[in-house]
Simulated assay, not measured.
Amino acid sequence: MAPVEGLRHASSFGAAATAYAEHRPDYAQAAVRWALEPAPGLRVLDLGAGTGKLTATLVAVGADVTAVEPDPAMLTELRRALPDVRALPGSAEAIPLPDASVDVVLAGNAMHWFDMAVAGPEIARVLAPGGIMAGLWNVVDDRADWVAGLARVSGSAAIGPRDTPASWRVATATAHLPKNDVAARFGAPEQAEFPHGQRRTADSLLATLATRAGMLVMEDPDRDATLGRIRAFLTSRPETANGEFTLPMLTCVLRVRRL
């Protein structure tokens, strides 16, 4: 993705902050625990925290969380939902925390937006020795036949790179990690996947897909056509045509230790 286009996608979420908070899924607790388990402590930075989807899961597993989010609308939603969490304006490229002040830096569906040439040194700076950096992504599990069909009719704007298990494994194998000399401060990356799911109806799944960056930056006629195509598919499938269903998902984790 070109830098200007990437910036446009990354900055698209604020206008849909309320919908994002309502419709985006949380993260599998087992995935969060795996990301945390080798860390020297539980001082956790949720970087690019959005509306607090990952933050809430971290609170639930007992972490001492600081959330950092660059978008004011997203940060407002996070503070409304989690008033007891320390939530600060900032970005991966300019983290408003002291050196070696956290044991873990996590990013939920956000690390692919970071400029790692700048963010890598910042993350290394705030991490204590032995600390963990990890990205978490919720992906749809296209091993289910109807989910594979949904991915085909949705197009890359709604279900794109990193949004299915196989594409996630390839996309994160070498990307989204510190670059150049900063990479030498980190060990070998590890990947893991954990079962997850989200209760949806056809309408609420459409609302979820409408919060994807590629959808948010579409022209209205194109977005309406894409959503119409998805709706027609969902109403044609016995798994999704009537009432609530579980959207099969995985929470996928890319983890690396600071040396």
Results as ranks from 00 to 15, higher is better:
D142Y: 07
P195F: 08
V140Q: 02
W137G: 07
G160I: 10
P178I: 09
D142G: 03
R152G: 02
N138V: 14
A183I: 01
R200H: 07
D220L: 13
F194V: 13
T174S: 12
D163N: 11
T235I: 02
N138Q: 11
V139T: 14
D142L: 06
F194I: 13
D224H: 14
L177S: 04
S167N: 15
H176M: 10
L206E: 05
P161V: 13
R152Q: 08
D222T: 15
A213G: 11
N138H: 10
A202S: 03
P195N: 05
P195T: 07
G155I: 07
R229C: 07
G149D: 02
A166K: 06
V147G: 01
A207S: 09
I159T: 02
V217S: 11
S204W: 06
R212E: 01
A183E: 04
F233R: 02
V217C: 09
V153P: 04
Q198F: 07
P178W: 11
L150E: 00
A188R: 04
R199A: 14
R185M: 08
A210M: 03
G197L: 01
R199L: 13
L216P: 09
A157L: 12
R229I: 03
R231W: 10
A225F: 14
D222Y: 15
P195Q: 05
M218N: 09
R199Y: 11
L209S: 00
D145L: 02
T201Q: 00
L206W: 08
D163T: 06
G155W: 12
D222K: 15
T172M: 14
F194N: 11
S156Y: 11
R185L: 13
L136S: 09
D222V: 15
F186C: 02
R223N: 15
S204D: 05
P195E: 12
S204N: 00
S204G: 06
G155C: 09
G149P: 04
N180T: 06
A192K: 10
M215Q: 08
D163S: 15
K179C: 11
R169H: 13
L136W: 13
G149A: 03
L205W: 00
G187W: 04
Q191C: 08
Q198T: 12
L209D: 01
N180F: 11
R185F: 08
V217N: 10
T164M: 06
